[in-house]
Computed example of a mutant assay.
Amino acid sequence: MITLRLISAALLFNSHGDLLMMKRSMNRTLSPGMWAAVGGHLEACEMALPRAACLREIEEETGIAEHEISGLRLQYILMRLKEQEIRQQFIYIGQTDRNPRITTTEGDLHWIPRHEIMNRKLPFIFHFALDHYLVHGDTPHPWVGTSTRDKNGDPSVSWTPLLDPNLV
């Protein structure tokens, strides 16, 4: 039986271009010890509200409130099959110059300079999303990324712009 896991996360940049990242605790179920965005699972009441889940996770993990974030917008929807689980992740991009005000057992928060981001040990699909964002930057539309394999059999992500065909 295939199950579904919905996740919402934020790439928060400061005015210097640094990215707020979490070095995940070794006791985490998903991606222990790896570097990731701030975020987590959608609650049952948030199934149609991934932005609300993202804001909740930001506040729970950093203490940064919605009014301290500017330009928060959906940039990526990532899909992958992991064993018998479809993982769908909503990635939002935003800006803040607020430093985290709380600590969490989920991991340690750090501002990572833009040129060092890709040198971190990153979860597979998150690595591809960060690489795509650092190359393409902000776009007027979100992207859908689905995990796949390239012609050599190596893990890859296939990117498609998410556009309303009635507005194109």
Rank of each mutant, 00 (worst) to 15 (best):
T104W: 00
T104E: 05
T105K: 13
T105D: 13
E106H: 11
G107W: 03
L109D: 00
H110Y: 11
H110N: 11
H110E: 14
W111E: 03
W111G: 05
I112A: 03
I112K: 02
P113A: 07
P113L: 09
R114W: 03
H115A: 03
H115M: 03
H115Q: 08
H115W: 02
E116N: 06
I117N: 00
M118N: 12
M118I: 15
N119L: 04
R120W: 00
R120M: 05
R120N: 03
L122D: 07
L122Y: 01
L122H: 01
L122I: 11
P123A: 08
F124T: 14
F124W: 05
I125R: 10
I125Q: 14
F126P: 04
F126R: 08
H127F: 13
F128E: 12
A129I: 10
D131A: 15
D131R: 15
D131K: 15
H132M: 03
H132L: 07
L134H: 00
V135A: 11
V135H: 11
G137L: 02
T139L: 08
T139N: 09
T139I: 06
T139M: 11
H141R: 02
H141F: 09
H141Q: 06
H141W: 07
P142S: 04
P142C: 06
P142K: 01
W143P: 05
